[in-house]
Design a protein around this nucleic acid. Structure first.
Lengths: 330, 330
DNA sequence: CTGAAAGCGCTAACAC
DNA sequence: GTGTTAGCGCTTTCAG
């Protein structure tokens, strides 16, 4: 009772106990405690790549919210591997996490089945299957990407490309939901401007974000079709895109405008600073924890939540210059 | 015995057990297991800022090594706060981690005392107090920084600055060891070239790396003393330095050369790409886990290990141009 | 090779 | 307020 601060204890006894704690350097054993209580104050968080600032910032935000409400968070990073995901989920269940947040790009079917079977409260990003214990946070890719595409078109751009990357590894083991969602949103947005003569291509490369982004933009530059604006599927990809363009001597935003996705802290410090679609991480973290704890503590059923996105305008995209001459030789 | 794969079990029994496991969706309870065994296969890892790619990459590396040897790793991020550090250590002890890796910039005295008292195997970065259970990995800042300074001087630079940042918060609660170590190493390196007319200044700003780096370099540009080369204490700081220089219209490396520290993946993708001192994260992770497991499993006493550093040359530093005119007005 | 039993350190329920 | 006790799910030991 002294340790857990509950009930009333005689001040004298309390002091005696505290003295003993001090003397013996006593630390409560969390395992014994959790075992006896039959529940834990532990949340599991699984992300795809902790090195990506976007995921790192989500981690921060979730951890902070969880701590504020007396929960610990156990983190796993999957490197975009469906198998790693399944393993991580399994380990988390072994640890009897009270709830599980799965904020990954990849997904695997048996993970979903497993979770539903176990009735472990869980919250996903972009997986549209809400149930009694499973919630879903849908990020408004469509809205954000529409804003970005419209922004580019309003600046006079008519020929766009979408630079997409896919993690390494056999794709049959996992599907990359947010990649598909972002791509579809781009297609859809462009279609709405088709009658204005707007055209778009999609280029894809495989590998880590920056490297694949650089390769993809170089591939795009070699295409017969020319473009004046590029949209990167995520910030690390934009990093590679910028680098690729600079290596080829293409001025950004002078010759090609660039827009990115995620709005991680990098955007502000690159040159040119990156116009990017913001996903509010702070709000995401709060949503995740609230959703989970609502389910865990108050038995609220799973919910579907929408997270808005916003275009943050910086330097990397500008009005298209009408030049008689073609842009520099590429 | 079936679950833990030990001993011999009759194949028939094994199948029967496995069927039951499947049917009941059985997951061993790690808390019960750990409690009964009296030990865990859990390592604690504490870093200062998970958003910083340097720490993120260390995390990856430690996690990978630990998994390869059958250990989980529990991560905490302190935001450079000594109090957070103490809290994290306490929580980790509550979880009865088998060993603790403290890879932080900040340090607090009572953490050291606590650890020594508990005899929890631990490995530090840069804390020079090896004991029976405590190991230390000393990063060769001196060597790395000497190489970088010599490189700049060989390129003709004679007036350097060292851009240093300090996390926010009251400094009395914590000391930032690696900041001091890097600063001292810089001073020492410069001193060795004093007779050749080399001069150096140190500028410091407080706050998050990129922001503080940008402020610091702008402060430096306003100093009466001019310089031709800048060394940033870490990559995020270099990011701010580059941005600050570009905002002031200073060409890098044309007018000012920049060298950084950490060699995170960013360096390769910035423009200009960053010459940086590499701390081999892969090796660090391996050292950490080996050190810890050596202590945990084989009762090896704590050790002092040295991790080498290497200068990776890229575009951001070049030979000093002798110009009759001063560099552009600043 | 299999079954039975004690105990890891804690919590919760109850009697004092 | 305080002391006692059963039992959380597992490991370990020992008897069969």
């Amino acid at each position: 009772m002294v340790v857990n601060g509950r009930d009333k204890v005689d001040p004298k006894t309390r002091r005696r106990v505290q003295a003993a704690i001090e003397r013996l350097n006593y630390q409560p054993n969390l395992y014994a405690s959790n075992l006896a209580k039959g529940r834990t104050r532990l949340l599991g968080l699984i992300v795809s790549d902790i090195v990506n600032p976007f995921f790192a910032e989500i981690t921060q935000s979730v951890r902070q919210e969880a701590h504020a409400r007396g929960y610990e968070v156990f983190l796993a990073s999957t490197q975009f591997s469906g198998q790693e995901l399944a393993g991580a989920v399994k380990r988390m269940m072994g640890m009897r996490v009270a709830g599980l947040a799965i904020m990954t790009t990849e997904m695997s079917a048996d993970v979903l089945a497993q979770l539903r079977k176990n009735r472990t409260p869980a919250v996903f990003e972009d997986v549209g299957t809400v149930s009694e214990t499973i919630s879903n946070i849908r990020i408004d890719y469509e809205g954000g990407i529409f804003k970005a595409v419209k922004y580019l078109i309003d600046l006079g751009h008519k020929s766009l490309i979408f630079v997409r990357t896919e993690p390494d590894g056999s794709p049959q083991h996992s599907s990359f939901l947010s990649i598909a969602a972002r791509t579809n949103a781009f297609q859809k947005a462009v279609n709405q401007f088709k009658m204005q003569g707007v055209q778009a291509e999609i280029v894809t490369c495989t590998g880590a974000g920056p490297k694949a982004g650089q390769q993809a933009i170089m591939k795009a530059l070699d295409l017969p079709k020319k473009f004046t604006a590029a949209m990167a599927i995520a910030d690390p990809v934009a990093l590679g895109v910028l680098r690729g363009l600079q290596l080829r001597g293409v001025k950004v935003p002078g010759e090609i405008s660039v827009v990115s996705f995620d709005n991680s802290y990098l955007c502000e410090y690159l040159t040119p600073s990156l116009t990017s679609i913001d996903i509010p991480r702070g709000k995401l973290g709060k949503m995740v924890v609230e959703c989970l704890l609502g389910n865990i503590e108050d038995k609220h059923p799973g919910r579907e939540l929408l997270l808005e996105t916003n275009l943050v305008v910086r330097e990397s995209a500008t009005r298209l210059m009408r030049s008689k001459t073609q842009p520099s030789q590429r």
